[in-house]
């Protein structure tokens, strides 16, 4: 892929819609299933991923001309691991309650395929600003997907949003159960597929 020609806003929208990391690229789905029980969880993990993605993209973009092609992957891993450690330490220190909720998933950001993939596909070929906006787009896309799932599951499962009582009763306890995460992700993917199909049909006809 040559240097991108897209504008910044296109890069951001691309991350949220066309190449949404969870619903379209089907990458880094563990947290999408595991801890999307509340909107708050989704938001917090989204912020953590946004942080790691943006900083790693920028770091790689800055040093892209110095990286020896043979040690490309180790460098990516090291960069990501460093920023994950940073966000892990910061969250553990300043937001202990939220950190406990997210459990092991903050540390597991290091194994998210989406971040490595964006570094390999985008950041090592593009300028710093473009990489920054691409990182923002991907991070926001992830956050958007997590929050959508959290919204559905929290509203249907517990009748609350952000911990505030909305419905006053619990419609379907099933949605808070961990197994329901699989169903929600599956149905959301199907909706994305449906929208794409409908859109293509409209363009043709």
């Amino acid at each position: 892929m040559p240097a991108t020609t897209k504008t910044n806003s296109q890069l951001v929208v691309n991350g949220i819609l066309n190449e949404n990391p969870i619903f379209r690229l089907a990458l880094s789905m563990c947290p999408a299933v595991g801890i999307s029980t509340t909107v708050m969880n989704g938001l917090l993990l989204g912020i953590a991923v946004l942080f790691v993605q943006v900083f790693s993209s920028c770091t790689i973009s800055v040093i892209r001309n110095f990286i020896h092609p043979k040690i490309r992957i180790p460098t990516y891993t090291l960069t990501i691991a460093t920023w994950v450690t940073v966000i892990d330490l910061v969250l553990a220190a300043y937001m202990p309650a939220a950190y406990k909720e997210m459990g092991i998933f903050v540390k597991l950001i290091v194994a998210f395929a989406i971040i490595t993939m964006r570094l390999e596909m985008f950041a090592c070929k593009n300028s710093v600003p473009a990489s920054f906006w691409d990182g923002v787009g991907m991070g926001l896309g992830f956050m958007f997907a997590m929050m959508t799932l959290g919204f559905v599951r929290e509203l249907l499962g517990m009748g609350t949003l952000f911990g505030y009582d909305i419905l006053g009763f619990k419609p379907l306890l099933f949605f808070v159960l961990p197994a329901a995460g699989f169903f929600c992700v599956g149905i959301m993917m199907a909706i994305y597929n449906y929208v794409e199909l409908a859109y293509n049909r409209k363009k043709k006809g």
Partner: peptide, 12 residues
């Protein structure tokens, strides 16, 4: 990482 650890450890 060392710097961040040194800063956050006390706060933690």
């Amino acid at each position: 990482m060392g710097t961040v650890f040194a800063i956050t450890d006390k706060a933690k």
